[in-house]
Nucleic acid binder design. Structure first.
Length: 339
DNA sequence: GAGGGTCAAGTCCGT
DNA sequence: ACGGACTTGACCCTC
């Protein structure tokens, strides 16, 4: 099975674009755009609808181009998380109607079908990661209901691309996040569509719910291990040989599992030797707040943690979460491909 | 074009 | 009580 390293949501052409892509940059063509509800509400209806149409058509074309481009990479780099912003304000009460219009929906579904065909043709592994507002395990029923709608928005896009047909043919990853915990996730699952249930994965968090909480759900859903979250939470570099990791692997039922890999920001790691893995307790003693350790680096600059995470690669695809996006995942690949 | 204020939504932490 | 952080800072307005 192909071993993959992927990146998140955006394509950039150079390090300067880490701090934003300019309107005139060609990278715009490979990335989604969005708007705000506030701005839409200030416009006349026809202006707001034109804006949504322009964004939708741009976004569908940009995702197509992105996947085409990723599909041209080395087979080990054919994995990408796609943006949630393809259909802006889809789940917002005042503007969601826009996408119910037949002319709009037909266009979107035709483009999604093309995107999915291209991804399968070029063997690009895809995923989504709904935002922090998608809290399926909230203790508030109204929040659970809106979170299901938000999750189903992602499942709808995946299904329109031709996914959600078999277990984990597409990954839509969320955190437990809510006060109802793992039981809250378990209670929400039967309310999801079959496509959504095929795609959902649950990821361990830095603060509230760790790998043990996720493993409670290992029979229900596939578990995503984020090794950096685990480190922030516990200070431990969990090993690929750990029994918990084996249980994460088996939750994928034979599908090649995915781990998430990120690093603390360079201005924190800079205090450490790049050939020695950062020591969380030493960092905390030196006054670095745990909250700051969570923020992501531009690149994967620590050779020791790169070597550590490469131990997972024979078994797990590696989703790199870095502000350097594709540049960071390419560099990691070059570093670990010969380990 | 650059810079600053703003942005739908949940939850938790630090101050 | 409020700001910041999170899956991805981008966008809009003013100058």
């Amino acid at each position: 099975m192909t071993q993959r390293i992927g990146f998140c949501c955006k394509w950039i052409d150079g390090p300067s674009q880490i701090n934003g892509i300019k309107q005139t940059d060609t990278a715009k063509e490979f990335n989604t755009g969005t708007t705000t509800v506030t701005w839409l509400k200030r416009q006349r209806t026809d202006v707001a609808e034109q804006k949504l149409w322009d964004l939708m058509t741009h976004n569908l074309n940009s995702v197509y181009k992105l996947i085409e481009r990723v599909g041209g990479l080395n087979e080990h780099l054919r994995m990408v998380r796609i943006s949630s912003d393809i259909l802006p304000v889809y789940t917002e009460p005042n503007f969601g109607y826009f996408y119910d219009q037949p002319g709009v929906r037909d266009y979107a579904e035709r483009k999604f079908a093309e995107i999915g065909r291209m991804a399968r043709l070029l063997d690009v592994r895809l995923s989504f990661h709904p935002g922090q507002f998608c809290v399926l395990a909230s203790d508030r029923p109204d929040v659970v209901q809106r979170s299901i709608e938000e999750f189903e928005y992602h499942a709808y896009m995946a299904a329109a691309m031709g996914y959600g047909k078999t277990f984990q043919d597409f990954k839509i990853n969320v955190h437990i996040a809510g006060r109802a915990g793992a039981e809250g996730i378990r209670a929400a699952l039967p309310k999801l569509s079959p496509e959504a249930r095929n795609c959902i994965t649950i990821e361990n968090e830095e603060v509230s719910y760790g790998i043990d909480d996720c493993l409670d759900l290992g029979r229900d859903v596939a578990i995503v291990l984020d090794v950096h979250h685990h480190w922030v939470r516990t200070g431990e570099y969990i090993l690929a040989t750990d029994d918990k990791v084996k249980r994460v692997e088996s939750s994928w039922r034979g599908v090649r599992p995915v781990i998430h890999y990120s690093c603390s920001r360079e201005d924190i790691l800079g205090y450490h030797d790049p050939v020695v893995m950062p020591d969380m307790f030493a960092l905390l003693e030196n006054g670095h707040k745990k909250q700051k350790l969570r923020a992501h680096s531009n690149f994967m600059g620590n050779k020791a943690t790169n070597m550590y995470v490469s131990e997972f690669w024979p078994t797990f695809d590696i989703q790199v979460e870095a502000k350097g996006k594709n540049l960071a995942s390419f560099a990691l690949y070059e570093e670990i491909k010969n380990y």
